[in-house]
Nucleic acid binder design. Structure first.
Lengths: 337, 337
DNA sequence: AACCTTTCCGGTAACGCTCCCGGTAATTTT
DNA sequence: AAAATTACCGGGAGCGTTACCGGAAAGGTT
């Protein structure tokens, strides 16, 4: 590694002291106008950049936010854009790590970010994560963190969440309004909070409509569309077939759609289908898939803003959750004539 | 910010010197087995983590790679996974910045990464970038960088590229083999290298088949599907209509598809369509879209490996490009009976 | 018993930067 | 003209860590 330019070099070049260069560069008083100009000009000319490591060592903070996400799919990519924007405004740099929905990878990533001495964390936990000691440990050290999208009950920390209950509710209610009554639920991993909250909303809508909840219409599985595909196959092979499917994510909805098509059933006439996330693809498929929109960009931006606010106020936990509203997007897959 | 644990704390706690703690922790000789155990145990118990800022200051490197990408779409998200994996193996941390295809944002990001004293860069330039002085400046400082996916002729640096010429060639040839002859090309921004290389491959395939190249069948525009949509509208409204479209990206192919459908034309019977990238969505659309696959993950991984190799050999530029092969993926959109 | 190796440990400088203090020369106040 | 203030600058310490050197105590060699 080359030796990069330091204020010492500038000091020597100009025949003045390091302290003076430092003061001049930071616009402090106690420095002569001419001297200041000479320093600033030279720094400009030589493209001087302060060494962040030295600053970090001194100030005990890095101006860096560690962002931990399960993956970089449409939702998280959009959320990260939001985080990025807010962080940049406030002079923070962002370090993104993806866990690939794996607890082990999440552990490694938190450790690395901690070693990098990030000032704090913005986290969406992996679906695989059951123990959250690694996050508690961070909290114990007094390092601020905010969670988004995926809830962690065990942790007392600010959270930016979607009202998933409401999302599940309006999705299911929409299906009911369209005349569907045998509505199946395609869920994510069993323990996953967002899946379960949407599930509760689903049950609530059923109950409200006087439709008896049927356990046989509920499937759980992994996050990818292959699982959704086989789970839907099972649903459609059963004696009691559903006439609509509410999938807790668009990925799963797509898997379900493939299965439905394979069974020679028509959407939305034979089977209604609604997803969750409003990924752009749902609008391009044929039929286009109804879904629940969640404000990913806003979520990321809010999370980052909240984080920055915490940093400024030096308060480790404001602990009041921010809950955003889901929005129903009606497309062809639920438009039964 | 709380004061975090340092080796000094451990030294005091154990009543030994800082040097000894340091040596014990790094597994160096010259330290008694018992002392070592005591140190390691206490460090473990207190969850000690070395301060990277101090290390960086001392070693003059940060073990961090700055990754600069235009966006986080499927291709780049996959490539980043590859980079991540290789980086992690070698003990590097990755800092990702997206330019949103904007030159200005790219400038800001390079500056920030430079300030963060990343050890080097892995870059895919924004389509908006016409001047590359900011990269030249980095090179002048002796900071290693490798480019991937998008070529920059003006820069002498290692590059991981796809054989875009070949990609354009096999895509077009496939259309020709399927009996299409009036083949239009839907390109990206005018100056963009990957678009132009694919375009050259397209022309080469036409020439080889004895088909006269027709300028009216060529459209350029921005990267998003709206542009592709209006451009295709134009193609289809013209007197001379194409009977197939080769879009230089899947996004553009999707825009074209929407336009084709709106015109009441059938794919692949009236018009053949092939894209580029092999985004998963192309396989889910109806009809599914033929495309050219490029090994995104491998590309990222290779880029990172090359970078790390450069770091180890302390060679700033190995300068020989690595060119990966595209692969034809045949789907419904070109399967004319 | 006098020397030479080991073994183990502590002290110091350095990385690049900022903060704090002290000092000189110039300027103002009495 | 002496004293007090101001303007400007330099020196040193310290942030957490490692590399290097020197030294004391223990053991090994004649």
């Amino acid at each position: 590694m080359e030796r990069l330019l330091t204020i010492k070099d500038i000091a020597i070049e100009l025949g003045i002291s390091i302290s003076t260069v430092s003061r001049a560069l930071r616009g402090q008083p106690d420095v002569n106008a001419e001297t200041r100009k000479a320093v600033v000009d030279l720094a400009e000319k030589l493209d001087y950049q302060p060494n962040k490591a030295a600053l970090s060592l001194l100030n005990k903070h890095t101006n860096t936010i560690g962002v931990l996400v399960p993956n970089l799919d449409y939702f998280f990519a959009t959320a990260i854009k939001g985080i990025d924007e807010a962080a940049l405004e406030a002079g923070y740099t962002v370090m993104v790590c993806q866990s690939n929905e794996s607890y082990g990878k999440e552990l490694i990533n938190t450790k690395r970010l901690l070693e990098s001495r990030v000032d704090g964390f913005i986290i969406s936990v992996s679906s695989d994560t059951k123990i959250v000691d690694h996050f508690k440990k961070i909290q114990d050290k007094g390092i601020p963190m905010v969670f988004f999208d995926r809830d962690v009950n065990e942790l007392q920390a600010p959270k930016i969440l979607l009202n998933n209950f409401e999302g599940g509710y309006i999705a299911t209610k929409h299906l009911i309004n369209k005349g569907y009554s045998k509505i199946a639920f395609l869920g994510g991993p069993e323990r996953m909070s967002i899946s379960n909250q949407r599930f509760e909303g689903y049950k609530s809508a059923l109950k409200e409509a006087g439709i008896k909840f049927n356990v046989k219409f509920v499937e759980h599985g992994d996050f990818n569309q292959e699982y959704a595909y086989v789970n839907t196959n099972e649903l459609l092979r059963a004696k009691q077939k559903p006439d609509a499917i509410f999938a807790m994510s668009d990925r799963l909805a797509i898997g379900a759609m493939q299965s439905i098509k394979k069974h020679g059933l028509r959407i939305p006439d034979d089977i209604g289908l609604i997803g969750f996330n409003n990924e752009p693809i749902t609008n391009l498929l044929s039929p286009s898939i109804s879904t629940i929109d969640q404000p990913a960009f806003e979520m990321g931006k809010t999370a980052a803003r909240l984080f920055i606010e915490m940093m400024n106020n030096d308060s480790t936990a404001s602990s009041d959750n921010i809950v955003l509203k889901p929005k129903l997007i009606v497309r062809e897959s639920t438009m039964r004539k």
